[in-house]
Write a protein that binds this DNA or RNA. Structure first.
Length: 826
RNA sequence: GCCCCGGUAGCCCAACGGCAGAGGCAGCGGUCUCAAACUCCGUACGGUGUGGGUUCAAAUCCCACCCGGGGCACCA
């Protein structure tokens, strides 16, 4: 890889090369983890603060303890859990994809549609396990809001917004025999239509809400739901399933009993894991109600068109009959059946008014409050693998996590003979995973002095996920060999500090000036890295509040691929085209199109291109074929065009036979000089905007003009050649440098400033105006640059072609756009 | 199902609401040559996915639809 980067002349700085698996790197990953672990999020100040300040706040009473008791009344264990409950890295029980047959937890992407492992086809179970988790949800608002301040492609921002998934609504409390059951809803105004409730099979109140006669059915349903994977559970093409708990809750607005059901279409991970079902206004609830014969009262009057477009008789007031409806009514309509003694929604037409009236009522009666909910979940941060950063955490005699001091970093991985995960009986969903690090007892069991004398501890045997190192590596590039800091603060400020110096005048976030990467990182790496960076910013370790100020997503290189009649890909390089068909070893093959890669056998390696055409041609071809952000096809036979271009450049400067210079000191023609300045002006703008394709087109245009003039006057004017080579240098550095030396320069072209256009030469003395009649071009006028509108108009009307075309008619309207064109409307 | 991006010449792609063409590939004609390749010069081809709308003027703005690519997906 390094060899390939180097031979293509890519500006890769080996002195700033880092490896996230190097202990000198991951020592700082562990250090940052400790900063996260030893901090908490202050909701009032909206920032992370050191954990000591939480303890001080508890102690002096400025921060309420979780159960409200004074700090000095809490014992050691209570104090500890009061603090641990607020840490930004914390241990939690979370359901994961557990595959005993492989001995590891799998990502959702590694589980097949029928709930088995992608590799080995072993059963996968949903299992709740104690896992390290990062409290990224506390940053949801800031991660969302600060997107506005970043120079990122809008689609990527949108993907992050959708992923964070902010929605405004309300929490509503329904009384049940087992205590309040709280739901999250975005439509509190529809509460009068709530006729049943659905809770997730994992909801903590399931047992308490289940009556004895329904216990077996509920239990069976929960087991079945647990065996399903996420794919099955969220497959909305399947018919809804569910079981009644036997218990009724009370609708707070009208006192109606509402049955509580358990169904797996409600997810524990979103909202409160419980919903109020309003079947008349929500298609899922409507389907569920129809399936289980639950009532569907109407609470909004659908408009006339809603009925007519469904070929129903229009229903009004008491005649509204949902039993005739083919589907739920989702939209704005006048509220009906939505009033109680002190809340009247009936007659309102605005959902916004309905919501605010309902929210006020709920607050006043203590049955709910407005609430903002996010789709974003806290980040599961442990993995049961060998390769990964060990946590700088040990467990004490109470099995509680204790952070190691900086002086004990790095915590190195132990040497193991076998570092594969421990496989178990494929159907053993009871035994916990045994991470590879558990195998080294001497590594795992340690005696340490953490300030209160030598004691026995047990190391954390999970490791961090692969994202950990990439959450901050961009900072290490700034200062890769620093042994005292992960990055020197002054160095960070120099490279990544906000443009306004941090005084907030421009709102600039600071961060990497330009980050080029694929769109596949839109929500994982780019969200995790922003999260860590913001913690480091809050704690004062960096001056930038975002890691990547400007982001650019380059497109993929795609290529044709070919399959034989059996559907197997065949090597694209050996396919021949004959008579419009494609042939491989005498067999006709079919052509398709996809991302260049091994599986489609359509790879063209940089080395092949380097050997055949050279690095500069290869670079130009890649950049010229289309916009950087666009995925586009690779077509080897098009590469020749860029090679010819470079050969033409060469021949304009060097005589091929004798090798002598063809550059002359005589001035260029006025025309060529003007063209050159126009090209300089355009190329500068193109380069700034990363439009390399149009920059290259302009360079070709300039060189083509130079070719003509060179042939005419017997040499290439130096005043054109020099800027042209300067502009070629960033695109094709090797040939540019060679020609630069041949022009007699002792220095390197790389450090010569980019040419600047002479603005006075960008203005033409005469302008050619197209003259349109009713939008169609009929003739062209050449008009002096300084001609005013009236002059141009007079010239246009006096033109003989115009007179002929008008044929005596008088134009109704004459539009003259100075510098552009003339349009006559008749 | 919802959302995003794109659709211009045989192909890859340009075009501040203002003459559809910057550039490259392929093609054709010429130039060179004994011939060819290379070179150089010249050149045809489309009216911008479809249908409406706004405008003096639409590839460009708006609406609907079609096709291709991508994201999210029972999110309450």
């Amino acid at each position: 890889m390094r060899r390939q980067l180097r031979r293509l002349g890519l500006g890769h700085d080996a002195r700033r090369s880092v490896s996230t698996t190097d202990e000198n790197f991951y020592r700082w990953t562990q250090w940052i983890f400790l900063k996260v672990f030893n901090s908490w999020y202050d909701e009032e100040q909206k920032r992370a603060r050191p954990i000591d300040e939480l303890e001080q706040g508890y102690a002096n009473g400025s921060i309420a303890t979780p159960d409200g008791r004074p700090w000095n009344e809490l014992n050691k264990t209570d104090r500890r859990s009061a603090i641990d409950a607020r840490r930004l890295a914390y241990l939690s029980e979370a359901p994961v994809n557990w595959c005993p047959g492989l001995g590891t937890i799998l990502a959702n992407e590694e589980v097949t549609a029928d709930g088995r492992s992608d590799i080995g086809n072993y059963p996968v179970f949903k299992k709740s396990m104690r896992q390290w988790t990062m409290r990224i949800t506390t940053y949801a608002d800031r991660l969302l809001d600060d997107l506005e301040r970043l120079d990122w492609p809008e689609p990527i921002k949108l993907m992050q917004r959708n992923w964070i998934g902010r929605s405004e609504g309300a929490r509503v409390h329904f009384a049940t025999p087992a205590g309040d059951l709280t739901v999250f809803t975005t439509r509190p105004d529809t509460l009068f239509g709530a006729t049943f409730m659905v809770i997730s099979p994992e909801h903590p109140l399931v047992d308490a809400l289940t009556t004895d006669e329904n216990r077996q059915a509920i239990q069976d349903y929960r087991v079945a739901a647990a065996a399903k994977n996420q794919f099955d559970r969220t497959d909305d093409t399947k018919e809804k399933t569910g079981v009644f708990t036997g218990t009724y809750a009370t609708n707070p607005v009208n006192g109606a009993p509402v049955p509580v059901w358990v169904a797996d279409y409600v997810l524990m991970g979103y909202g409160t894991g419980a919903i109020m079902a309003v079947p008349c206004g929500d298609q899922r609830d409507f389907d569920f109600a129809r399936r289980f014969n639950l009532p569907i009262p109407a609470i909004q009057q659908p408009p006339v068109e809603w009925f007519t477009s469904r070929e129903l008789e229009v229903q009004h007031g008491s005649r509204v009959d949902t039993s005739t409806w083919p589907e739920a009514f989702v939209g704005d309509g006048v509220y009906i059946n939505s009033s109680n003694d002190d809340l009247q929604l009936d007659g309102l037409t605005s959902v916004a008014e309905g919501k605010s009236a309902m929210n006020a009522w709920l607050e006043a009666h203590g049955r709910g409050n407005t609430n903002i909910n996010f789709k974003l979940r806290d980040w599961l941060f442990s993995r049961q693998r060998y390769w990964g950063e060990p946590f700088p955490i040990v467990y004490d005699e109470d099995d509680q996590p204790v952070s190691l001091p900086d002086s004990m970093l790095p915590v190195l991985l132990p040497e193991l003979e076998d570092f594969k995960p421990q496989a178990l009986d494929p159907n053993d969903d009871v035994t916990d995973p045994i991470p590879p690090l558990a195998r080294s007892t001497e590594w795992r069991e340690v005696v340490l002095d953490l300030g209160d004398g030598p004691k026995k501890y047990r190391r954390e045997i999970n490791v961090m996920p692969q994202w950990a190192g990439s959450c901050w590596y961009e900072l290490r590039y700034l200062d890769p060999t620093n042994t005292d800091h992960f990055v020197d603060p002054a160095v960070e400020k120099y490279w990544m500090g906000p443009a306004d110096g941090g005084d907030g005048t421009t709102g600039h976030t600071g961060g990497v000036d330009l980050y080029v990467g694929g769109v596949e990182h839109a929500v994982l790496h780019l969200l995790y890295a922003r999260f860590w960076h913001k913690i480091l910013f809050d704690l004062g370790h960096v001056s930038s509040s975002e890691p990547f100020y400007r982001l650019f997503n380059q497109g993929y290189v795609q290529a044709f691929a070919f399959r034989d009649p059996r559907g197997q890909p065949v090597p694209a390089s050996d396919v021949e085209e004959r008579d419009g068909s494609y042939w491989y070893e005498g067999e006709k093959v079919s052509r398709e199109y996809g991302k260049m890669g091994k599986s489609l056998k359509n790879i063209v390696t940089p080395d092949e291109m380097y050997d055949e055409y050279g690095a500069d041609t290869f670079r130009l071809y890649e950049m010229s074929s289309g916009p950087l952000e666009a995925s586009r096809p690779w077509n080897t036979r098009d590469v020749i065009g860029m090679q010819r271009f470079l050969q033409r450049v060469w021949r304009n400067l060097v005589d091929e036979d004798s090798g002598r210079s063809l550059v002359i000191d005589a001035p260029a023609s006025e025309e060529l000089r003007k063209l050159m300045h126009r090209m300089i002006d355009g190329i500068r703008a193109d380069m700034d905007a990363l439009r390399f394709n149009t920059a290259i087109a302009k360079l070709i245009q300039l060189n083509n003009a130079l070719t003509q003039e060179s042939a005419a006057v017997g040499g290439s004017p130096r005043e054109v050649v020099v800027p042209m080579i300067q502009m070629l240098s960033p695109l094709c550095p090797h040939i540019a440098e060679e020609l630069w030396q041949r022009l007699g320069h002792a220095n390197t072209v790389t450090f010569v400033p980019f040419p600047v256009a002479d603005q006075s030469l960008l203005v033409e003395e005469t302008i050619e105006y197209p003259v349109q009649i009713n939008g169609k071009v009929r003739t062209r006028l050449t008009v002096p640059n300084e001609a005013d509108q009236a002059t141009i108009q007079a010239l246009a009307l006096a033109d003989e072609k115009v007179i002929a075309a008008l044929d005596g008619e008088v134009p109704k309207k004459i539009i003259v756009i100075p510098g552009r064109m003339v349009n006559l409307v008749v």
